[in-house]
Design a protein around this nucleic acid. Sequence first.
DNA 1: ACTTTATTCAACTAAATGGTTGACTTACGA
DNA 2: TCGTAAGTCAACCATTTAGTTGAATAAAGT
Lengths: 136, 136
Amino acid sequence: MADQLSKVFAALADPTRRDMVARLSVADSTVNELAEPYDVSLQAVSKHLKVLEDSGLVSRTRDAQRRPVHLEDNVFDLMTKWIERYKQQAEERYQRLDAVLEAMNADEEANDADFSAASAEGSEDTSSHRKSRKGA
Amino acid sequence: MADQLSKVFAALADPTRRDMVARLSVADSTVNELAEPYDVSLQAVSKHLKVLEDSGLVSRTRDAQRRPVHLEDNVFDLMTKWIERYKQQAEERYQRLDAVLEAMNADEEANDADFSAASAEGSEDTSSHRKSRKGA
DNA sequence: ACTTTATTCAACTAAATGGTTGACTTACGA
DNA sequence: TCGTAAGTCAACCATTTAGTTGAATAAAGT
């Protein structure tokens, strides 16, 4: 596929795989153990594990004919970093918007009473972004 | 498809969609604005937006013939909650394991010197999990 | 009313995904 | 060395996905 972040998100988009991760957070397991609760073939589980493995979410070692699966919890940070970044950016934006609205309110005091409703929809006056995108 | 968590992860598994989200964290945008930087048809972008929308990551309002897209940052929490939960669980496990190893070390002091390497692989003695899964 | 702008719908295609079954490999244990 | 247990590989199938093009809709602008 492509970059790791894409692979990790894709891997966790499947409920069975998420459940496997959940169970692996409790203890390392073998393929058979992991397969047990699900109503699919062992091969299907093996495939799921391959997906998890090459997303970097799990690793496998070898113990005789067993291949214990181990959760690589550090990969989670990759996601949380991405998520937190944009979440914060969005939040900051709202704070800025609130600040602007307040400033306008304070500045123009009793001019135009109901403009805030329209602005709350968003989109209208985000000119700085619009220009820069067009230019690029 | 299915549950929201699956949809959100699936939505973010695509780099183009992630980029859209990144840009939407800066400002709400119209479909045309969003489409501009990418080398695909407007219709393709429209589809991506549909995916983002029914994952709950974005919402759309209406402004004349435009349909401004707005990032719903609250959905991020759904993911971070899931992630943090299992990340913590995994971390706690390691702490517990470390504690056990230390306890054994303290208890048996100078008995069996190299067992720690084998235990570090994991899998061997996770009996509690094994039993409970089998039972269920 | 006629045209343009912004966006979606519909039909199609190629590739990826999640599942299946059957054959194979690897290593242990008798 | 023969059998069995634990997994994987390979070929196949159905469904979903990301993209395409062409036609349709909706609201302005002229």
